[in-house]
């Protein structure tokens, strides 16, 4: 009873990937891959996804720790807010980012006036858009790890004279490392594939804001063969990352 739908489900996931492999222009793959615009897009994608992940780690781990450990009024509301980008259409996220950080946005206006800082349609904007969409993946994963970590190790550290910061750095963080690692991988993968928020907030400028997914979309209109090649590259990167981390972290 269950085998048939299971097989259909599996086919549904695998067939499109198979299509990608079958229709790929294997004979011209080499020359196409070496084209500068593809290399540019790939470099920008890897760079911005990595920076976005670092940004998420920097603010997401403390946020997850606070959500897991500090009991403050409105904690449930904050947790709900953190997960909003998960369910929000990315394009809406991009619009929201424009309204907040755009030239005339709530905060962007002052960034522009005081620091001459303009975020939309820049590489920094790409990083921000990706981080906005990917942050919940990291926070949820890390929060779970912090909740599961044995508090008594922190007691032990305190009796050995460790301050709260030392305890966090030398005891809590290593204990939750697998959760942080898994969260970072999910976060990075989500950032790498980000499309909607990026194109809305950062635009589609080759070399500056045109990441791989954007390049794929653009290529689909005027050079479908190139779109397939780009897609293959994204697929390969994802598989390599997943395979490399499998077994080391629970995924």
């Amino acid at each position: 009873m269950l085998v048939l739908p299971a097989l259909i489900g599996l086919a549904f996931l695998v067939l499109p990937l198979l299509g990608l492999l079958v229709r790929a222009p294997w004979s011209t793959l080499g020359t196409r891959l070496a084209r500068p615009e593809i290399l540019d897009a790939l470099r920008l994608s890897l760079l911005s996804a990595t920076l976005a992940t670092l940004l998420c780690l920097l603010v997401g781990v403390p946020l997850a720790w606070v959500l897991a450990r500090v009991d403050f009024p409105g904690r449930r509301l904050v947790r709900a807010l953190v997960t909003v980008p998960l369910v929000l259409p990315p394009v809406v996220g991009g619009v929201a980012l424009l309204l907040a950080l755009g030239r005339n946005g709530l905060v962007g206006r002052w960034l522009d006036r005081w620091f001459g800082l303009t975020l939309p349609f820049t590489t920094a904007g790409v990083v921000l858009a990706e981080a906005f969409v990917a942050l919940p993946f990291l926070v949820i994963s890390v929060e779970g790890a912090v909740r599961a970590a044995d508090l008594r190790y922190e007691d032990a550290a305190a009796t050995l004279g460790a301050s709260r910061w030392t305890t966090f750095r030398r005891v809590t963080l290593p204990l939750i490392a697998p959760g942080v690692g898994a969260g970072a991988v999910l976060c990075w993968a989500r950032a790498l594939g980000e499309f909607g928020a990026t194109i809305t907030f950062a635009g589609n400028f080759p070399g500056r804001t045109q990441t791989m997914p954007l390049a794929v979309y653009l290529a689909l209109e005027n050079d479908p063969q190139a779109a397939i090649v780009l897609s293959l590259v994204l697929l390969a990167v994802s598989v390599v990352v997943l395979a490399g981390l499998r077994g080391r972290w629970v995924l």
């Binding site: 044995d150 008594r152 190790y153 032990a156 550290a157 290593p174 204990l175 490392a177």
Partner: peptide, 8 residues
């Protein structure tokens, strides 16, 4: 339970 730090 001793609570030796498992990562050290």
């Amino acid at each position: 339970d001793l609570l030796l730090f498992p990562h050290l």
